[in-house]
Amino acid sequence: MRSISILAGLAVALVLPVWAQGLPRDAAVNAAAPNKTLEPRVVTNSGRLEWLPHAHNLTPWPTLSHEDRRPAPKPRKARLAGPLDGDAGRGRDIAVRPDKGYCIVCHQIPGEEWPGTVGLDLRGFKQRQYADAAVYQQIFDARVNNAQTVMPPFGTNNILSEQEIRDLVVFLQSLE
């Protein structure tokens, strides 16, 4: 009896590390593929659902699965060290590109059509006279200022690099 419980304990202890850190079993993934994440493709007049490799690996972040025991990254304070050293032109590019910051989904930016209205209107941003460090923090992880914010934590979740956030700060501070 005792040896059975030891064996069972050992078996579970060996399996656990994979399971506790791992993806839930109901995630749509191909663990052997470079990007892991799959997306569904509906094939007309077929009883089978096709799964294709998705352009991005989304597996590092927590899902909606009940089995997912992985934590979400906690709010992080950012420290802006040294001179800003950003580029406003690159910043604008990052602000409009869907694969980068894509700020225009929620914000209005001068010269861009179809602005979002969820976030702050960024026209005339310079006149607000925010400190560079405060703007950097807001983009890096806005949860530090407001736990219920819908603004993604671009720095904490590695959506943008530090340099890209610096470029955005320079771009925003240039908006007359």
Binding site: A28, V42, W61, L64
Partner: peptide
Amino acid sequence: LRFAECNLDTRTQPLVPGSRA
């Protein structure tokens, strides 16, 4: 599949149809 699309649109790993969640 709409839920899976919503997940992908917000860069969230989708689940398979019929999952409990």
